[in-house]
C-alpha cells in the first residue's frame, strides 16, 4: 500500500504517519491520536476507527480483537457550546451581525 494513503480524512493523517507512531511505541488508537491528531476531527474517529485498529493489529502482528476502541468523550455528537451552556439561541450568523451593528454604533 502507498504510504501516503490517507487514513483519517478529517485530520489528513496518512498510513506513514500512523506507522511512524506505531514505531514510536503506539499500540492503541488513543496512543496514535495523541501523537498524530488522528481521529480528532469533526467525525471523531467514526470513519477511521477500524482502519486504524486494523493497521495497528497488522503492524504489531496481533488480532484486531486485542486493539481497544478510542476513549469516547462527551459531547458524543457535534454540539454548539452555546447549547451546552444553556443559551437559548446560538447562531454564528446572528452574532456576526450583532458585532457589525455594535461597531456601527447602534447600541
Amino acid at each position: 500500500m502507498d504510504k501516503s494513503t490517507i487514513v483519517c480524512r478529517c485530520e489528513e493523517i496518512n498510513v506513514d504517519e500512523i506507522e511512524g507512531a506505531i514505531r514510536m511505541g503506539a499500540s492503541t488508537f488513543d496512543d496514535i491520536k495523541r501523537l498524530t491528531r488522528c481521529g480528532m476531527g469533526p467525525c471523531q474517529s467514526k470513519i477511521c476507527m477500524n482502519l486504524v485498529r486494523e493497521l495497528i493489529a497488522n503492524n504489531l502482528g496481533v488480532s484486531i480483537s486485542e486493539i481497544p476502541p478510542p476513549r469516547m468523550r462527551m459531547p458524543l455528537k457535534i454540539t454548539r457550546l452555546g447549547i451546552l451552556a444553556g443559551k437559548t439561541s446560538s447562531s454564528n450568523v446572528v452574532s456576526v451581525f450583532d458585532e457589525a451593528s455594535l461597531e456601527a454604533g447602534e447600541r
Binding site: 482502519l51 459531547p75 454540539t79 447549547i83 451546552l84
Partner: peptide, 28 residues
Amino acid sequence: ANDTETFPIDAKKVIVTTGAAEETDLFP
C-alpha cells in the same frame, strides 16, 4: 441536545437501538 437546548431525561430503563455504521476500505 437539539438545535436550541441541552436537557436531561430521567429514564428507568434505556434501550439502545443505535444500529450500525458501514465500514470503509483503505486504498490509495
